[in-house]
């Protein structure tokens, strides 16, 4: 993992704390393999809130248009944190 990935990952973790609360995330070590549904038990509306924060932080890079196009809700929720950070990083490259 590059330092740039660490930066995006740290930002995503910070946003997750804002969306779901710090108490819950104390029990979970968030890494690239963490899934939004299975590991974080994120609700779909919370994923929307996360998406909004990514867009506010990264602009078009944080937008999910390219990432989630063609995915249904289950596929989106089964993504990993790494899928998300890679998307932001790839758009940045």
């Amino acid at each position: 993992m590059t330092s740039a990935d660490d930066g995006v990952l740290a930002e995503v973790v910070r946003m997750l704390v804002e969306v779901v609360g710090e108490d819950f995330l104390l029990d979970v070590q968030v890494g690239p393999d963490t899934t939004f549904n299975g590991d974080l038990a994120l609700e779909s509306i919370e994923f929307v809130a996360l998406a909004e924060k990514l867009r506010a932080r990264y602009g078009d890079r944080g937008d999910f248009a390219g990432l989630v196009a063609g995915m249904d809700l289950d596929q989106i929720m089964n993504m990993t944190v790494g899928d998300l950070t890679q998307h932001v990083e790839a758009a940045h490259a």
């Binding site: 779909s44 994923f47 989630v68």
Partner: peptide, 25 residues
């Protein structure tokens, strides 16, 4: 239910077709 039902289903195709999509809870 909440706005996520539309966020992941209809809103993006509708906006891609040229409409400004508004969702709210």
């Amino acid at each position: 239910d909440n706005l996520s039902s539309f966020y992941y289903s209809l809103a993006r195709p509708v906006s891609a077709a040229g409409a400004h999509a508004v969702m709210y809870d």
